[in-house]
Design a protein around this nucleic acid. Sequence first.
DNA 1: CTGCTTGCGATCGTATACGATTTCGCCGCG
DNA 2: CGCGGCGAAATCGTATACGATCGCAAGCAG
Lengths: 232, 232
Amino acid sequence: MNVESKSQQAYRFIRDRIDDGRYVPGYRLVLGQIAGELEVSVVPVREAIRRLEAEGLVTFERNVGAQVALIKETEYLHTMQTLSIVEGAATALSAPYLMPEHLRRAREINERMRRSLDDFDPHRFTELNLEFHAVLFEECPNPHILDLVHRGWNRMRMLRDSSFSFVPGRARESVAEHERILDLLERGADPLEIELAARSHRTATLDAMLAYQAKHKHPHPEPLAATESRMP
Amino acid sequence: MNVESKSQQAYRFIRDRIDDGRYVPGYRLVLGQIAGELEVSVVPVREAIRRLEAEGLVTFERNVGAQVALIKETEYLHTMQTLSIVEGAATALSAPYLMPEHLRRAREINERMRRSLDDFDPHRFTELNLEFHAVLFEECPNPHILDLVHRGWNRMRMLRDSSFSFVPGRARESVAEHERILDLLERGADPLEIELAARSHRTATLDAMLAYQAKHKHPHPEPLAATESRMP
DNA sequence: CTGCTTGCGATCGTATACGATTTCGCCGCG
DNA sequence: CGCGGCGAAATCGTATACGATCGCAAGCAG
């Protein structure tokens, strides 16, 4: 009965293709073409693209057209930094609501992450990584914060290939940090301590990436207040 | 030459009316009616409303229509909590980039806030309050975070009447807290200290509101992890 | 009187049509 | 050979049209 609206359908269509990499950043979204593939008219497609634009996944230029958002490096760093903050907060806020069951599941996922490392399966690793944090956020009392976290993840997913795998050794540290966060949660540590641990879990990744890139590619990707936000 | 697109025009039209209170929360947005007032067709109006929906200012129900978002109390609290986090972070991130000139202007605005209190001008007070924080964020190196702050402010503005004025005495405390934040910035305090000060500046308002409401209206607006996020 | 059904008006959702704008290749000129 | 202008094709932006859906009120049965 209640079939989803065509604009919703178009939204999902495009969104799926962005998510799974068929539409790479920079890919030109031509209204008529997408409308043709979907067998709908251009109006719903325009709405869908507008929505994607508001979410930051797509850029839209008047009379020119839309394309999958190109994330510049500094943009990427800013998103990482923002993520570190909202993820840290979300973890701390969720802490009081996490049951032993959640922690058990999280540990189990983390174990699988460790194993995926031994199997050299980076794709599986990043997938499990998302799952891990998703478990921690399941009981987050503030859906707003959660929304911000998801926005950040979407953004990140668009560059999935420039994630962990690019910094040798970082993944293993990541697993260890997960362990530490779980320990803090388990013993009901101070929320601030949890927040900072979760935050630096992400900023450590960021810093590792910066260091790695500085050594291997550009001399300086651009100074950022990232490290200043790290807080010891 | 390059007149703004009609959908942009419609967006601004609606947005203005929401901002200045002509469209109150719950106000029903009828496509044809708005299109008529603007002398455009419904298609651009739909796009505008979709965008407002993505920004959270408007809710849209299929085959029923759009209305200015009704913010429930818990929603409000969540937004405040989120704001406390992102504002705190934004303040800390901006700290290294603030020149004495900025601090001077901020102090001056804060003084005017104090005076507006003596004149019993709450509208002016809230206006200056935004200005104050805007100055602190002028040099924020992370536009992402800033964007989140602005989103939060938009949300808040929709309930402007339930802000400071409802908690007697809170405004004066707020001025004092501004002073304290400025002091921390001036002496180049630890970023974490600045962040927590800015954060608790907002959560203090939240807590004051909750306490006030608990005493005067409802027994319990609903428990929230707010105080847990406050962090001493 | 109450509750369910039915029909109508209001409004939404989308297709189609067409003018407006941009892009890009082609041509002539320097 | 390069470059500036011109024209056609591609694409966008919006108006209009019309079917689809919802809400509400009137009518009918119990």
